[in-house]
Amino acid sequence: MTTIWTGLAIGAVYALVAVGYNITMAQSGIFNFTQGQVMVFGCFFAWFTMVDLNLPWWGAAVAGAVVCGLIGLLVELLAVRPVVARHGAHGHALLVTTVGAFVIILGALAATWGRTPKSLPFFGGSETVTLLGGKLSPVDLWLVAIAVVTALAMHLVSGRTSWGLSGRAATDNPDAAKAKGVNVTALRTTAFMLAGALGGLLGPVLAPKVGVSVSIGVSLTIYGFVALALGGFGSYLGCLVGGAAVGLVQASAGRYFGAEYPPLILFGLLVLILLVKPTGLFGHRGLRVV
């Protein structure tokens, strides 16, 4: 049972990364390579504000949301907008500029706060609780709850608000959406800001779980993508399921086979899902272009 709780807790982290990916995918059709790295920035920033500046956790969360929202804005303005203007939203030039933005955030973190890992204790305590026969810490409970609430909220936002609905129109057919008066650029910018702000807001909860270190960006980026691919591109609830699946596989493979196996098994899972069901379990819109 403890393994299941561990899996669900780390799965919640991946689900949150996937939700972040999905926001820009759903609103602009662009894959935001920087999402995982922005979340790492959120962790560093939470550490900085709570340990160095002694801010309360909610103050750190708000400050993190503002700063990471601005990072999202900068990524969109500097690495996405000029490329979309020149080559359109589906050219390969975007690949290199978003990877570049990922690298810049990584480099900035390493240059400012160094490569030695830091740690941030969870503000809600660290005494483990026993639930249904398994042990888990308060931060795990928080993460699972936050992931569920966030995914549900985004699901409702995308289906019920005009912002979410215009996003669907804009990704289905940008030209038609433009002709109907949808501001495609504004949708994209707000999506990047929202995804960034989400990453920053979560800093105080994420940092105690995943650690404060530049080396976690890659695994967040990749496992978040596996969660998205499993759950289905375009589906917020799918992110939740995908995240949980990745977390459970990781925890149980690590427990029963050894620490080297989870990445291999998850890689196999990703390859399998892309080959067998490219839309993911709940995706309605494939990423298929061929």
């Binding site: 390579f33 291999l264 990703l270 061929v290």
Partner: peptide, 24 residues
């Protein structure tokens, strides 16, 4: 698998190798 989907998918699937190499 990566190329059946968009260009992003290939970038991410191949990026996975960065995690796999040390474990392998």
């Amino acid at each position: 698998p990566g190329l059946r989907l968009s260009r992003w998918a290939l970038a991410l699937v191949s990026f996975f190798y960065v995690l796999l190499v040390p474990e392998l």
